[in-house]
């Protein structure tokens, strides 16, 4: 194993618990990480990307074989300076597997990044993708999670903070093609400066996806008069035995809340920070049990 130089470092105590292989079927530099059948990993696999002076074009496949479980952290934070990144991420969760996948994007504010993430989740398997975006000059992110077996559960949390004149654009789809799927998309953003933040979300329940329940939530805090914020929370429902819904909210910090803090001697800037942390707290709590990921996210915030 590892007869090739990886463009990332993998931190994990026992590297026999998984298989990392180079793939040659695509033009793009490509690696695949496989968690073998029945393997239940207790600690998180931490994949840390290296800095590069040249543009990076990379594909990373993740496969959880039947009955396995893992927490994987894809870490672009730290001193990552890459001028341009084109990243593709394919996730396959076989039956009864359980994946928690955390993306920490804190790379340079000069980096332009395009990412495409696609997951296929089989019967009774679970996949929860958390993506935290605090980096990039410009980001175009496309994420599609699909249920490909009965009772699959797919969840996606996208958290983004965009400042200055940066431009982050997210397009996330949950596609329920098999019966009794479930899951939620949460897209939360904070926009400042003259930044642009786009949230496109879609819950698509196919004719074959009867008994599925899908929800989409978008919330944005718009903190500056020069930002542009766009939200498209879409639903495409092709059958009636479903529970589906969405909500979207765009607002500034509540003046009454700021006043409340002020009357208790807390300065406005501190109060703002507290309110922003509160805005993200519910989503942060979801990964609290995954200590490494939680601590990394707190550092980014």
């Amino acid at each position: 194993m590892n007869e090739f130089r990886l463009p990332f470092i993998i931190e994990y105590p026992d590297k026999d618990d998984f298989i990392i292989a180079k793939c040659y079927e695509t033009k793009q530099e490509c690696y695949k990480l496989t968690i073998p059948t029945g393997k239940q990993l207790e600690k998180a696999i931490h994949i840390k990307f290296r800095a590069s002076d040249t543009p990076l074009s990379l594909s990373l496949g993740i496969e959880l074989q039947e009955g396995s479980s893992a927490v994987i952290i894809e870490d672009w934070s730290g001193d990552i300076k890459v001028p341009e990144i084109n990243f593709v991420n394919h996730i396959t969760c076989q039956a009864n597997s359980n994946l928690t996948y955390v993306v920490l994007n804190g790379n340079s504010h000069q980096t332009k990044m395009t990412e495409k993430r696609v997951s296929n989740i089989a019967s009774d398997a679970k996949c929860h993708i958390f993506t935290y975006h605090f980096g990039n000059k410009k980001l175009t992110s496309r994420l599609i999670q699909k249920t490909s077996g009965k009772g699959a559960e797919i969840n996606t949390d996208i958290i983004a903070k965009v400042t200055d004149d940066r431009d982050l654009s997210f397009d996330c789809t949950h596609e329920f093609a098999e019966k009794q799927g479930s899951g939620e998309i949460v897209m939360k953003g904070i926009a400042q400066g003259s930044a642009m933040l786009n949230f496109d979300g879609l819950v698509n329940i196919k004719k074959t996806g009867g008994g599925s329940a899908g929800y989409l939530k978008q919330e944005t805090l718009n903190l500056s008069p020069d930002t542009t914020v766009r939200a498209v929370p879409a639903l495409k429902i092709d059958t009636n035995d479903v529970k589906a819904g969405h909500s979207a909210a765009i607002r500034n910090l509540n003046e009454e809340d700021l006043y409340y803090f002020g009357t208790r001697g807390i300065e406005k800037e501190t109060a703002k920070k507290l309110l922003i942390t509160g805005f993200l707290e519910k989503e942060l709590k979801k990964i609290k049990k995954h200590k490494t990921a939680y601590e990394e996210v707190r550092k980014l915030i």
């Binding site: 926009a191 004719k207 009867g210 944005t220 718009n222 903190l223 500056s224 008069p225 930002t227 542009t228 914020v229 766009r230 939200a231 498209v232 929370p233 879409a234 639903l235 495409k236 429902i237 092709d238 059958t239 009636n240 035995d241 479903v242 529970k243 589906a244 819904g245 969405h246 909500s247 979207a248 909210a249 765009i250 607002r251 500034n252």
Partner: peptide, 28 residues
């Protein structure tokens, strides 16, 4: 089971003093 419902809202906000809320539900 043969009927369809789609929802495509587009919300664009160019200032930070606006308060926008949108909710949708689909079911039988």
């Amino acid at each position: 089971p043969v009927s369809i419902s789609d929802t495509y809202p587009n919300i664009k906000v160019d200032n930070n003093s606006a308060t926008i809320s949108h909710e949708a539900r689909v079911g039988r």
